[in-house]
Structure formats: structure tokens, C-alpha cells
Design a protein around this nucleic acid. Structure first.
Lengths: 263, 263
DNA sequence: GAGTGGTCTAGACCACAGA
DNA sequence: CTGTGGTCTAGACCACTCG
């Protein structure tokens, strides 16, 4: 397990210490000067090693305070779950997430905004609306995990939904509270029920805004998931963009084989 | 678009030059010394900036030769595709991939091995087999994109399938050529037909082996996709692990809503 | 102001590719 | 042997946090 270079080797050593509990979850690491002395290396080299672990999501740095081990383990995100007993109740992403976080001693907090606005270019193209006008209702949610004790909360995802105003204007979809069953139920009421869902996933560095909202650094990566709801007659009625730190989530899909490839 | 630090700013400048074609796809960048002179920075700072772009998959470095712009754009990987005309024929991952690569002027090459072996721990757990014995047939494939001209080939994924020997021994599944329809058809023949597929996706740095096989550096990231085939009576019969550079692939899922959450 | 991490520079040396 | 990138060090200075 020897690395090609000293700073990668140092990263391996510290990573091992995190895994075996020498550096406990949520705990603070020694200062870089001390680590450098212990490891007989220059502080710059140690700093470079720590950057690797920060990029992997194992550490977070509070400048001026110190370096800490991340506390919240990766969360499962279930999509396209059919079938079985133990997973059925996790079908709704919200409900499953709350369950998961509760078991870890966290609660879920969500900040919401609803207003007309402009869609991003790729969303406008999917929906067939004007990217230069306030052509959609924008429902933005920023979700955070709040620990039972202490004050350290963890931002976990940003979800932004776009619904064409030709569909949403004057309906509960344009209101903060969309009513029982949420937006999906309202789309059914309005004759725009979704029949199929599509998700397009890429991994990329966060934008400056995303990095700020999710408390990430540029070396980390986000899942950028474009979630599209299609009607029975194959019209896109809603696009939701999920931005999630890759180190904070596992993605799960389960689906019947008759509709799929079997490589 | 100013960055917090000089090396990130330099990375932004070069990234922009790649996007606008100043540095052409497949072309070579100036030497780090020259870039440093042009940008009035130290070579170490430029080197640091280039590392960011390598991590993003935009550049690749041949030590002793120079730094080059990556040539193969991200490929779409379709899974769980039901429905529509334009996508139906892409259902099989192999067929769709070949089509995609052909349009880009590449052909697909695959190296295959088939033999009994030990499954990784997490695969053994899913299949309920002994991780310490040669309890599975291992079918490993390494796939590369070969350009029509030139000799620069691009490794794009490693796929390793594990089938319990209690099912596979003495059948075509344990042979190099599994016959028409492949392993899935043989599983049907044997009464172990798959009814549902599950994929569990994580993003992580490559292991040393993976980095070597996929010609990646440790700062890059792979999708680690554990693909599970379930029978009608909910037994796992086949697990395939896909390892793919995140910068080389987009993932696509499309599935009916009756089996899914609608967040 | 003291403590902590972030970055830049200059010089040096190493590793690998190719003539 | 030359050209190219990779790394390490030492010293310096900056930025943020907290008392």
C-alpha cells in the first residue's frame, strides 16, 4: 500500500487512522505543524495530503480553528424502487431520508422558496420553454441534517424543481404549500400526471454557489441529477435538478427487467 | 469568475481555453515553464492548476512528453430504458455503446477472462457465497475505445461479473463464449431468469489497480456500480461490478412511475 | 494578538520519454 | 543527453477564528 509520493503516503496513513478510529468521527486532528513534526515532513506536504482527504469528504477544515473528521456517513438515495418488503416503505425519497437520518441521530430541515423564474438552459430545452423569460415556477429546496445535540449541521442537498407556468400558474403548484400529495398529485389533478421518470447523472466540481450552499470545497464533487417527469403522452411536465455531494450519498436504482438491458 | 487563489484562477483560464478551442481536443499544451512565464507565475503554481484539470478529466499528462487535452467526450450509459422510439434500440448497453462510439469515430475493444475465483466481500455477502473460496465464476471485461486513426486508445470501463458456481458450473456461463443471448439467456435456460435489476452507485478514488487499468490518476474519480440481478423469487443470481471514470460517462435511468418515488 | 490553515516562490532533485 | 512533468523544502506572507 505504499504510495508513489510522500504526500499520498501521508494521506493513506491518516485515512487509515480515520477508519480505525484513532481520529474519531467529529474529532479534531493535530495541527499541521504537529503532524509535520510527527511524520518528519514539511507542513506544505502535510497540507497537500490533507487536501486529498478533504476532497474525498473524510475531513473538513475550519480555517483558523482546525481540521476535523466528517461526522455524517453516506446516505442511501432510493429511486425506482419496486418490489420488496424492507424497501417498499422507502419509496418516497423524503420519507426514506427522514428514517435514515433519525437512525443516525439527525433530523431533516428544509428551506423552501417558490417563485416564477428563468430555467437553466438545459432545463429550458427539455421543457421547451423560453430560457430568457420567467417561463417556469421555480421551487428550490435546500436540505440540511441537524444533529440532536451540538450545533454542527450538515447541508446534504439542493433540489430545484421547474414547472412550466402554462401548467402551474394559478394552481397550488405555484404556492408554497402544494397540498396533500404534493406537486405530483396536483399534476395528476390537472391532467398532467407523470407516467415515467428519467434521471440523468453527471459528476462534476461544484459551482461557487453550490460550494457555498453545501459547504464544499472545489476539489470535492457533486452529483448533478436532472430528474424529468414524463406524461403518458410523452410530454415533460416537471424537471428537478438535484445537487448532492458525492461523498455524502449512495444512489440506488431497482427496476423490472422487461424494460431494461441486462448486461 | 475570479477564483480565490492564483492556481485556481489559472485553472479557470486554461479550462476556458480548452472549451473555446484555443487548446484543441487531443492537442498539446505549452510546457509548464512557458505557461508559467506567460501567466507570470511560478511553475509549481501552474503545475498545481494543471492537476485540477487532470482531476476533472480535461487533461492527461504523459510524463516526459507533455500535457494533452483529452479527446473522448463523456459517453451516455443507458439503463432501465423503457418506452420510446429513439432509445429503444439502445437498451443493450453493448449495442448502444458501439453506436455511440462509432459516431465519434471509435471502435470498441473488449478483453475478456473467464475463470472460477473469489468474490469481493460485498459481492459475497449479496450472493450468499463464501468469500474465502473460489465460489463464483468470474467474468472480467476491460473495454477500450480505439480510434480509427492514430494509436491513442482510451480505456473506458472495467466490468466484472460474479455468478455462483452452484449455478454456473458445467454450463456455458463458465465458458468464454456463453452462446446466443449471453449469460442472461443462459440464466433463463437454467431456471434462474432475472426479473429485476438493482444498481448501487458510489463515487470514489480509483484503487491502484483500477488507476492502472483505466489510465487514471488518484485525483480522478470512478463510478463504482454494483449491479444485481434478482430472480422472480427474489434470489440474487448475478452481480456485476462496473468501474468507470466519472469524467468519461453520464448515467441515464428511465423507469415507470408506478414503481418509483416521485419527489 | 495568538492560533490555525492556505498559498506562493525559489531552488533543488527525481522520474520518465525519446533522440 | 535533453526535455518534460512531479515533488519536496524552507521561508514568507495572507486569511480567518477566537479570545
Amino acid at each position: 500500500m505504499s504510495a508513489a509520493s510522500q504526500y499520498r503516503e501521508i494521506a493513506n496513513v491518516i485515512r487509515a487512522h480515520i477508519r480505525d478510529g484513532t481520529y474519531a468521527r467529529g474529532g479534531q486532528l493535530p495541527r499541521e505543524d504537529d503532524l509535520a513534526a510527527q511524520l518528519k515532513a514539511n507542513r506544505v506536504t502535510v497540507n497537500r495530503a490533507l487536501k486529498i482527504l478533504v476532497a474525498e469528504g473524510l475531513l473538513r477544515v475550519h480555517r483558523g480553528k482546525g481540521t476535523f473528521v466528517s461526522e455524517l456517513p453516506p446516505l442511501p438515495r432510493y429511486a425506482a424502487i419496486r418490489h420488496s418488503q424492507e424497501h417498499r416503505e422507502r419509496g418516497g425519497s423524503g420519507g426514506a431520508l427522514v428514517t435514515e437520518l433519525t437512525e443516525l441521530g439527525y433530523t431533516l430541515r428544509s428551506d423552501n422558496t417558490v417563485s416564477p423564474g428563468r430555467p437553466p438552459a438545459h432545463v429550458a430545452e427539455i421543457l421547451g420553454v423560453d430560457p430568457e423569460a420567467d417561463s417556469v415556477i421555480v421551487r428550490a429546496r435546500r436540505m440540511r441534517a441537524i444533529p440532536a445535540e451540538g450545533t454542527r449541521e450538515v447541508p446534504i442537498q439542493i433540489a430545484t424543481s421547474y414547472i412550466p407556468r402554462t401548467i402551474a400558474d394559478g394552481t397550488p403548484i405555484a404556492e408554497m404549500n402544494s397540498g396533500v400529495g404534493g406537486i405530483s398529485s396536483r399534476l395528476v389533478d390537472l391532467g398532467h400526471g407523470q407516467q415515467e421518470l428519467e434521471e440523468r447523472i453527471t459528476v462534476r466540481p461544484p459551482t461557487d454557489d453550490e460550494a457555498s450552499l453545501l459547504e464544499m470545497v472545489e476539489d470535492q464533487r457533486v452529483y448533478d441529477i436532472t430528474h424529468i417527469g414524463w406524461t403518458a403522452d410523452d410530454r415533460p411536465v416537471k424537471v428537478t435538478v438535484y445537487i448532492m455531494p458525492t461523498h455524502q450519498w449512495d444512489l440506488r436504482y431497482r427496476y423490472p427487467i422487461d424494460s431494461a438491458s441486462a448486461p
